[in-house]
Simulated assay, not measured.
Amino acid sequence: MRRWLYTFAGGGLAMVIAGAVAALTHQPWLFPSLGPAVMLHVEKPDAPESSPRNTVIGHAVALLTGYGFLLLCGLADNRSVLQEGVGVARIVAAAGSLAITATVLLFLRASHPPAGATTLIVSLGLLHTPTQLVIAMAGVLLVTVVDWLFNRATGRPMPVWSAPAQLRQEAHRG
């Protein structure tokens, strides 16, 4: 199968499944930063940043950090940035959550760039309740499993949990 066909089929399949679950449950199983995560999974399934380990740790750290900054900045009960605009507290929440997420993931050797979008989605108030965050994490797990199964079924290498040590070391040096 050609690379573009893998990308089309795998990406579409993961989004359709997450979207169907979201439609059936009326919950945020489908949110913007799943797109780049899925793209990594289907375009570069053997890259460290695409591994299930980095995906799960990355989004978990992002969700927790984004919510922590919502609380720290007194924004947990506010409307989203789209409704109330940008103020100093929102800038602090966005900048702080992104900086902390990136730094923690660096220390954990769990780089996953889509997590940067996830932490902003939370710190900007687009997802802001604990229930929404748990469901978002379930969406991450769902698309990761779907992509892993898709890659395995089509003979593409995606690790069960983490990339081989050599690839992780090379990615960390970069």
Rank of each mutant, 00 (worst) to 15 (best):
V86T: 14
V92E: 04
L108H: 11
S80D: 03
L82M: 12
S50W: 02
A76S: 15
A62S: 10
G74I: 03
A95D: 00
E49V: 12
R90H: 09
V56S: 07
E84Q: 15
L105K: 11
P48N: 04
R79K: 15
R53A: 04
G58D: 06
P48W: 08
S80A: 14
G74C: 04
V56K: 03
H112R: 01
A60C: 12
T55Y: 09
G66E: 05
A93M: 06
V61P: 05
S80I: 07
T103H: 13
R90G: 02
T55D: 08
L63F: 06
T101M: 05
L70I: 00
R53W: 04
Y67F: 15
P113A: 10
A94D: 00
L63V: 02
V104K: 10
I91W: 01
S111H: 10
L64I: 13
S51Y: 00
F107Q: 14
F69K: 15
R79L: 13
G58N: 06
F69S: 11
L75Q: 07
A99V: 06
L71M: 13
L108N: 10
L106C: 10
L106T: 12
A76F: 08
R109V: 05
V56W: 10
I57G: 04
I91H: 01
E84A: 14
V61F: 02
T103M: 12
H112T: 01
